[in-house]
Amino acid sequence: MIGLDTALGEITLVLFTTLAPAGAMALLLMGLPILSGRASWAEVRRISTYLCLPLIVSMVGLVASATHLGSPANALYVFAAVGSSPLSNEVLCAVIFLMLGGLYWLYSFRRAPSPRLLRLWIGAIDLAALAFIAAVGLAYSARTIISWNLWEVPVAIAANALMGGPLVALASYAVGRCTSLTARRAKGLAALAAGALAASVAVYGLQGVDLGSVGNAVASVTDLVPAYGAAVAAFALLGAGGIVIAWRATRNLPADGTPPEGAIRYQLVGRLCTAAALGLAAIFVMRFCFYLAHLTVGLGV
């Protein structure tokens, strides 16, 4: 399989595009109680501390993507083509998002951080996260790459982030023993993930129809990704599995968000981490298919 070379060669990008947008969306969702001003001061501090978890998820993705570069020492030149190369735009958005997130996290450890500044800062991080997710979706929209330059590609990245993000946010809340993890909020996040899963499956279905007629003299997308239908089914099953586990684990949480103690706490953390891992695995499957399907007009595969 020739497409396998591209997908395996770009496996770190598969990982990056799986983890980074989901981590960014999780950070946005996790910080909403701070942004809305509804969280108590103690809860603001707790959430701020544990925002590092989704940030780490994104960061691991970014570090993985850097390992695919032949000469990372030249990396500063990527800012030379901001505005013209979609890849430069993506890297710039990633750097802004991660810098804002990282500096927020450090600032939140001050003895008396300004609540107003924290709120404004979270708002800025949220905007940066949205811009970053959009930039990841558009990074490979090159006019000659006919199997990637489709409207479904950025939409799928956004829908995937909306599916994986809530699951990562739930797990992060649980690890941080945040009182924002109420049954109501957990239900809302699981419903968001379920809606995004349905939207992702629909987008992948339409993408499959569009890709069915795409090919060049070297190969067709149906040659490159013969099991596309099975991959979408695996995506749906893994995603649904994660969402069901998250929903079942959180449906009996107390309404005031009092975190469970002892063995129950570890069980909750374990189940929500499993749910997040399943959601990310689902996304990974379809990101792998994306790189398998690479094909240009003419002779590129």
Partner: peptide, 16 residues
Amino acid sequence: RKCIGCGYCHLACPYN
């Protein structure tokens, strides 16, 4: 001296 070896040129060139 500037190339980072990202391979985007390879992915986009229709003449391989």
